[in-house]
Simulated scan of single mutants.
Amino acid sequence: MKCVVELSEAEKITLQQLSINHKHRDIRTRAAGLLMLGRKIKPKAIAEQLGVSGQSVYNWSHAWRDSGVCGLTGGHCGGRPPALSDAMIATALEVARAEPLTLAQIAQRVQAIHAEPLPCRIETLGEALKREGFSFKRNRYALKKSATKRNSS
């Protein structure tokens, strides 16, 4: 079966934007592959250039023909599962809201409440808290320059 895709001007623009700006690499690759199919490049050449199997290119064209952009973006199931459970993140949020603590103290309290060690690095917990709107400041161990100038004068 021939693998040919006819694209309108609006579809070309949409696929170009997807191939450049989408957050998932696999969807960017699919959009670039469909643009190449629209330029009448052979599927095997597209597969070699994009580093995918030839069957993938055929699957993309069928998905595009059946469902358009939704078919193209619907297949993304990639990514690593989250290291922290929702319960651990919720506990960390409660602890962080209760009183001002360092990230290490928050991690210790979460471990104590759940009676198990964190399944990830402490930085991952910090990123999860940042996504929820918390910010962390580094403790200062040195005096500010303006304070030392006033005292020495």
Rank of each mutant, 00 (worst) to 15 (best):
R131H: 10
F134G: 01
T91L: 12
A83F: 08
A45D: 15
G78E: 11
K42R: 13
I122K: 11
P117S: 12
H114D: 07
A115G: 02
I41A: 10
D26W: 01
G79W: 10
I46A: 08
G74S: 14
G126L: 07
Q55C: 01
G78D: 11
L103Q: 07
A92H: 06
G71D: 08
V52A: 04
V57Q: 04
A31R: 04
R109I: 11
L35D: 01
F134P: 00
R25V: 03
L118N: 07
K40L: 11
S135W: 02
L84V: 06
F136R: 10
L72N: 06
M88R: 12
P82V: 12
L84F: 15
A128H: 11
A32M: 07
L103E: 11
A87Q: 15
A104I: 06
A47Y: 06
S135T: 09
P119Y: 03
G54W: 07
V110I: 09
D66K: 13
P100W: 00
E127W: 08
Y58A: 07
V110P: 09
A112H: 10
F134D: 03
W64Q: 01
Y58W: 07
I122L: 14
P117H: 08
S67G: 06
G51Y: 05
S56H: 01
G33P: 06
A83L: 15
V110R: 09
R131K: 14
Q108Y: 13
I27R: 12
C70G: 14
L34A: 09
R25F: 02
E127H: 13
R97F: 00
A104W: 02
A32P: 00
K137F: 08
W60M: 07
P119G: 08
L125N: 03
V57P: 04
P81Y: 15
G54I: 01
E127P: 00
M36E: 13
P117G: 09
M88A: 13
Q111V: 08
A96T: 10
I113Y: 12
E48M: 10
R30D: 05
D26E: 13
